[in-house]
């Protein structure tokens, strides 16, 4: 297990977990959110290519359209 920050809170996750894997574990549909790793928005098509390492900060924001 490794420890990351998810929306500011410590979270233990398994090793070799991709950002897409993290969303799947949390049952979050990737097209409904914005995912940022260390304050950089990650393109949706890259989510499966980026693997978490200890100390990473991940923010998952809702992708919204309200006006």
């Amino acid at each position: 297990m490794i420890t990351i920050k998810l929306n500011g809170k410590d979270e233990n996750v398994k090793e070799n977990l991709s950002l897409l894997g993290l969303l799947e574990d949390k049952k979050i549909a990737p097209d409904t959110v914005i995912v940022a790793l260390n304050m950089n928005v990650i393109n949706q098509t890259e989510l499966d290519k980026i693997f978490l390492s200890s100390g990473n900060s991940v923010e998952v924001l809702r992708f919204v359209a309200g006006g």
Binding site: A29, D31, Q44, T45, R62, F63
Partner: peptide, 10 residues
């Protein structure tokens, strides 16, 4: 955000 969500998902 290249992939649009379904209209009713949000």
């Amino acid at each position: 955000h290249p992939i649009a969500p379904e209209p009713d998902s949000v």
